Amino acid sequence: MGRGNPTLGLAIMAGSTLLSNFQDNTTEIGEALGIDELRLFPTIVTEPEEQASVLGLAAEAVFDITNDFSISFSRVFAADAPWRYNLIYRLNDQILVRASTNLSGESQLLVEYEARF
């Protein structure tokens, strides 16, 4: 969770809870702008020079191409990080495959598993 920092992990959980209260309003704003899903979420920002991690705020705008395939743009606002461009494919209700790049040489492929309880 907090990459070995339990306080930071708890802060992320609390931030997720607080931001979820605003998600309905954020979704309505996104729909008014023609965005299928607009998300705000807490994230960890690592400062390599200072060997420290802090809690940051990120946003993602998702545009659905089909029910299973989407493109999105995301950015962490607390860091001097470039925009990320994402291709998202939903295999099923639990598994999501995300290919991501910042067009500056950093690319990644993620497989996300979600279980709600």
Rank of each mutant, 00 (worst) to 15 (best):
L38F: 14
R39A: 12
F77H: 03
A115S: 08
V111E: 02
S72R: 00
L10I: 09
V45Q: 05
P48W: 01
Q94G: 03
T17H: 06
A99N: 06
T46E: 15
N67K: 11
V54F: 15
F69I: 15
A78R: 05
D24L: 04
F117M: 12
L18H: 05
L57T: 05
L91T: 00
I95V: 14
L18T: 11
I95W: 01
R98M: 00
I29R: 06
V76S: 11
T66F: 08
F117G: 11
P82N: 03
A79N: 13
A52I: 12
Q108C: 05
D80Q: 13
L18I: 10
N86F: 08
F77N: 04
R90A: 00
I12C: 06
A61W: 10
R3V: 07
A59V: 09
E28G: 02
L87D: 01
D93W: 00
S100V: 05
I71L: 15
T43L: 11
F77K: 03
A99G: 08
A58D: 06
T43K: 07
L110K: 12
L55Q: 08
A14W: 13
R116A: 11
E47L: 09
L103W: 03
V54K: 15
T7A: 14
L18Q: 10
P48C: 01
L96Q: 00
L96A: 01
F73M: 11
P6T: 14
T101K: 07
S107D: 14
S100A: 09
M13F: 05
F117D: 14
S70V: 01
Y113A: 01
T43I: 06
E112C: 00
